[in-house]
Design a protein around this nucleic acid. Structure first.
Lengths: 356, 356
DNA sequence: CTGTTAGCGCCTTCAT
DNA sequence: ATGAAGGCGCTAACAG
């Protein structure tokens, strides 16, 4: 039984102890205005001694200052529904944070549009926010602006893509290679020895490509490191073209190889699934990524066997909170934060969705 | 650019809109004192319309009242490390909530001790808490006290075990049968057709038994409903006896059946794994429950293939917050809340643990 | 039944 | 360089 009867000590107490007014205490606490060196030291001493910590509720209640957090992540205007997810995480965090006198600046842009990206960053700089969540889709442009952030001492948190050798406060994202391992492990468990495997890549997919490549690396490296022999075919398809993926897949399936498993390392598994459905092929193990609606649909129909999910909502949500904690409550923040790699099947998807 | 400049509306705003004073608004909000039915309705209407939510910081700043929440769940003193998990969720919630003027009353007891359970509930009643999180391990005793709770209008939330036909605010727990389905599905995917399967039950396990039974039901029903033929052997072992599970398992494995998979529907998978390790059997698919340390250890060593986890920390954490939200912020609470059924393998456990 | 008022701990402006 | 006072949104005691 815990009884928390320790009254918190406040600036009033330390003012009394120091024989000054609370106004003076406030000034030394915030380096605001001039205070005689002697009294200043005395106050600080007492602060130390009494282990004073501000009451952030009283603080945010009274403070006129609202901290501004800017979010720079793509939206789904490039026809990739994946991007809806982080946005919903942002909205949740924004809602919660209105209580704390903090406001979220969110500007969406097409993930494949260099200029849009640059423009957004310019706007963000103009707003002069207190902190920034950034998905650095274009590395060169990002680095440019990061210099500016550093100069202004604005903390920034990366989402999804981690840029090395810069001074970011934190990173929230996935370990793409490891998720490839997970996929491989599931594939191995569900297919016979020496399986024929197909990997369906997307061409013309510039933005996120490093992730996709690393998922594939992880996938194939799993088998080689376990010294399992597999027979892999990799095809590249323009998944945005209207005649695809049917044309390419038809070609592959006409070659009379019977595939045991198919790995789609991006969020477009549903396109493959749709193809399999029209062909009546429902005994192939298929593994895709991300819980977008059409994937969920085909998972439930049985044309996708596994989905791997990284809770992108949570990434955005956590990134924003990290900034808040850093700026307002001064909590220490862990720098590298990899998302969980969740395994979703028909049987557990329902409660997974209910618990996000 | 979304500018969240919507000032939160407060009791002052709704007072103005209703043409009354903030005092009156406060009274209807808290059912304190008498208010004319007409004005009462008007205020409530405006509250609805403006979607008012109280500023809990201002609230906890001004309020003298500290809300007391009592938690009645077992600890691990009955030698079941599972119970450590919810306790850690409680601690987290308690820590967060101290800020909000609420105090957590936690009294542990042995899950197998009827008298201990009763005593704790008596103590809880004496404390006269504002809300109660209850794991109703013993149904009859629980129902007895629930009558008292209802009489005093103290809201109570169930964890782990759901008692029907009582007026609980919410339930947080697992869908045991569905998790059995998940296990079955994984087992099916990883074993040949017509597999020999072994189910290792624990005897003398009174408290939690309905869950365990329902996991097994789900497991076997999956196969029958899919019309898959399996050959199942079920053994019951006193997993707390020192000569077990070795004696019983030895007997089973001496019978010259080669098992493809073993299902352990409780948290003691590690005991089986340890047996398999000493026997050098590492090609059997094994599925266990719960991320207790020894299970994690054997998962990483490869003697447990899958672990199914229900994030018991989160259940406790959410249950406490549900009470808080109900009592303090008046948020509506969903009554039935099933945990996610997480599939854990060697390859994804690391980030899973990092993200709890 | 309803309005007024004094805080809660802190920030901020205005005097001194 | 320092103190005094008003206010943030809400609770609770006190007057009508």
């Amino acid at each position: 039984m815990k009884n928390n009867t320790n009254k918190r000590i406040g600036i009033k107490d330390i003012a009394a102890r120091a024989g000054v007014s609370i106004g003076t205490v406030d000034r030394v606490l915030h380096n605001r205005g001039e205070v005689k060196e002697a009294t200043r030291n005395k106050v600080l001493e007492i602060v130390q001694e009494l282990d004073y910590t501000p009451n952030i509720f009283a603080k945010s209640l009274s403070s006129k200052h609202t901290t501004k957090l800017a979010i720079v992540i793509p939206d789904s205007s490039d026809n990739n529904p994946y991007w809806e997810k982080p946005v919903s995480g942002i909205k949740l965090a924004a809602e919660e944070l209105t209580h704390y006198n903090t406001e979220i600046l969110y500007e969406h842009f097409d993930a494949s549009d260099r200029n849009a990206f640059k423009n957004v960053l310019h706007k963000v700089c103009d707003q002069n926010p207190d902190g920034i969540v950034l998905n650095p889709v274009f590395k060169d442009i990002s680095l440019e602006f990061i210099q500016e952030f550093d100069k202004r001492a604005i903390p920034y948190v990366f989402i999804d893509i981690n840029l090395r050798e810069v001074n970011n406060l934190a990173y929230y994202g996935q370990d793409a290679e490891q998720s490839g391992w997970v996929a491989a492990r599931l594939m191995e468990a569900s297919t016979p020895k020496f399986p024929n495997l197909l990997i369906v890549k997307q061409s013309k997919w510039k933005v996120f490509s490093s992730h996709i490549e690393r998922r594939i690396e992880g996938f194939t490296r799993y088998f080689t490191e376990q010294q399992k022999v597999i027979n892999t075919t990799t095809i590249e398809i323009d998944l945005n073209a209207s005649n695809e993926p049917y044309e390419s897949l038809n070609k592959v399936f006409d070659q009379n190889i019977s595939y045991h498993g198919i790995f789609v390392p991006n969020s477009r598994g549903f396109k493959l699934a749709n193809f399999l459905k029209t062909k009546g092929l429902n005994n192939i193990i298929t593994i895709g990524y991300d819980l977008i609606d059409s994937n969920i649909d085909f998972l439930q129909q049985g044309y996708l066997t596994y989905l791997i999910s990284q809770k992108p909502e949570l990434q955005a949500y956590k990134a924003i909170w990290a900034l808040f904690d850093h700026l307002v409550t001064k909590k220490p923040i862990r720098k590298t934060n990899y998302s969980a790699i969740d395994i979703i099947i028909k049987e557990n998807i329902k409660y997974y969705l209910e618990n996000k």
